[in-house]
């Protein structure tokens, strides 16, 4: 198969985008600094941006070592969500029995506030790495399943007519038509799952952990250490954004043919 000859965004486009991200971050920090300067709140209510930065640097080894645990949970949970979500979505569309039996369960499961499951996971699996990954997965996998199902189902009926007059095999329609056209939908689901995995990782540590950024947050809250809490929150925002951009980058490579990915 030939390589895609699609027009790619140029480097100057990427640099300009990055510049705007920086400008927007600077704007937010500026507002924050302004608020601190004008209101002069005590540090346990609202610390100054510079104080947060300094604190992040002094406690860098603590933040990093605790962060490894959290990142491990987020990435493992996200990986598990993709590894379960996409095959489950495919099975739901491809196998009528699975659709009838499993899809209602998936939907009912999603209706549960997953935080409510966290204590149960602690009872079953204790305070280790596993329950936290499972909590993350339980939160993140649902949008991937739904996006996969929706993507596979929403096929142009005219394409199916083309397949019918070509006397296509069902498995081949799946491989050459349904699956490729579902990819943009699936990657959109993974993007949503990425943000949810970060939430899941932190919730998991709130209830079932003795380590991680979530655990640090709970500890800091107990001692009114607002500065370190701000450090963690900002780090989480950066981590979640980076993960999102990483997925978006993979998506651009994967679906260069899709209308939303063309720069004309």
């Amino acid at each position: 198969m030939a390589k895609a000859a699609g027009s790619k965004p140029t480097i100057s486009d990427g640099a300009r985008d990055a510049l705007w991200v920086c400008a927007s971050a600077a704007f937010a920090i500026g507002l924050w600094e302004l608020a601190v300067l004008m209101v002069k709140p005590p540090a346990y209510i609202l610390p100054a941006p510079l104080d947060v930065l300094v604190r992040t640097w002094t406690d860098r080894s603590l933040l990093l070592s605790q962060g490894m645990a959290t990142m491990g949970e987020i990435l493992a949970g996200l990986f598990l969500s993709i590894a379960i979500g996409i095959p489950l979505g495919i099975a739901i569309v491809a196998i009528p029995l699975v659709q009838r039996l499993a899809y209602p369960i998936v939907i009912a499961f999603n209706a549960i506030p997953k935080v409510a499951l966290a204590p149960l996971f602690v009872v079953w699996f204790g305070y280790g790495f596993l329950p936290r990954v499972l909590i993350t997965t339980s939160i993140a996998f649902f949008p991937i399943v739904v996006a996969t199902v929706t993507g596979l189902m929403s096929i142009d009926p005219d394409l199916l007519r083309l397949a019918a007059v070509s006397r296509a095999k069902k498995s081949r329609i799946f491989l050459h038509m349904r699956l490729p056209q579902a990819v943009p939908s699936i990657t959109a689901g993974i993007k949503i799952a990425t943000s949810l995995a970060v939430i899941g990782g932190i919730i998991g540590e709130f209830v079932a952990s003795d380590r991680g950024w979530g655990y640090l947050l709970v500890q800091a809250s107990g001692s009114l250490d607002t500065t370190i809490m701000f450090s963690i929150v900002i780090i989480l925002a950066i981590v979640a954004s980076l993960l999102f951009y990483l997925i978006a980058l993979a998506e651009t490579r994967l679906v260069s043919w899709h209308a939303s990915k063309r720069s004309i």
Partner: peptide
């Protein structure tokens, strides 16, 4: 058909050969 119904994820050659792939 009235619409060309080409698959965007396949090359021009891949689209012409699609009936064989589908079977």
């Amino acid at each position: 058909f009235q619409r060309d119904l080409l698959l965007d994820w396949k090359s021009v050659l891949g689209n012409v050969l699609l009936p064989f792939e589908l079977r």
